[in-house]
Design a protein around this nucleic acid. Structure first.
Lengths: 175, 175
DNA sequence: CTTATTTCTTAATCTAGATTAATGTTTAAA
DNA sequence: TTTAAACATTAATCTAGATTAAGAAATAAG
């Protein structure tokens, strides 16, 4: 989506697996365009449990949108799951620079798609079982299970690794 | 947010309480700007249970973003909770018409805020208890409880009316 | 390689919230 | 107004998924 805009930007940084690009509690939320590799964004709750908001592989942008929209301190951590190459995106660029109609349309389309995905996620968290959410996840992101440990998938789905393991067991045993 | 853009548009329609402005299964998703009154958007699951995606009061826009973004049939119903005056928004207008920088910025800002709200909703559905979600709802939308029956609030929170009733009982009894 | 660490599985137990059901209350209709 | 319909409460029971715990498998590190 944003490929054309960010692919050839100079300010690319490399982060190795496990590196934390952004922590909760920071004043300024940053946005990251992933050229290569894989990131995750997540919150850590009072009990120290991690809840993954999203994965971002090649071509995606991650940021703490809530913090950005309302100028709050960040709530999300952003971390490299694989060694990654990332472009730091200045968000104000988006709205302040002179964008032409074409770019404007592209950005709107990308944002609309992102919102569509979020709508679906909200509705399925409210109405679907853990198993249904997992099966939808597999359909929608078939590459991710090869790149991401199960416990992170569980965290994305809003369940425990134990529960996911049980679900997988039931699915393979065909009932 | 979109007040300036839509407030004085001519094509305002009136819908009385209970009217359905859009059903699931339609080819073309519409967007509605609320000038007056209150709408809700929701899905109906296989068991016939209703799950509210959002409320839209004065100044808000509702639409089935998922269907819009991916050109799928609509999944959301949109219904008037109160007698309402609504402007039918042509979504392609947004991206196709000649918008100036200022309007562009306004639209981006509004979309970012909407996404921020959605991010928060996803994270709290994954990590917060029903009671915490209810208390956050009261803080964030203090006017709504006066305009909306409890069962709809429960539906928005992703719980049953019975569970919400129990939570309210516990809160007032100060433990 | 060998050992340590992280991840995954399995099973027993527990709990938040669902379901069911009955009663009370408010709203709307006749 | 009376009567019906929609909404809210309370309580008993049930269940999906959490928690706890322990062992097995896979990865990483020395």
């Amino acid at each position: 989506m944003f490929d054309e805009i960010f692919k050839n930007t100079g300010n690319t940084k490399s982060f190795s697996k496990g590196a934390i690009l952004q922590s909760a509690g920071q004043k300024l939320a940053k946005a990251f365009y992933v050229k290569k590799g894989l990131l995750k964004s997540y919150i850590v709750d009072e009990k120290g449990k991690e809840h993954i908001f999203m994965f971002a592989s090649e071509g995606w942008i991650v940021s703490d949108i809530e913090s950005q929209a309302f100028n709050n301190e960040t709530v999300l951590f952003i971390e490299a799951i694989e060694n990654s190459e990332v472009v730091l995106v200045d968000v104000s660029d988006f709205s302040q620079s002179e964008k032409n109609q074409k770019e404007f349309k592209l950005i709107l389309e990308a944002l609309t798609k992102r919102m569509g995905v979020m709508q679906r996620r909200i509705l399925s968290l409210m109405s679907a079982s853990a198993r249904e959410r997992y099966e939808y996840f597999l359909q929608t992101y078939p590459e991710l299970p090869n790149r991401v440990p199960q416990k992170m998938i569980a965290s994305y789905l809003g369940i425990t690794p134990e529960a996911l393991s049980t679900i997988r067991n039931k699915i393979t045993k065909r009932h």
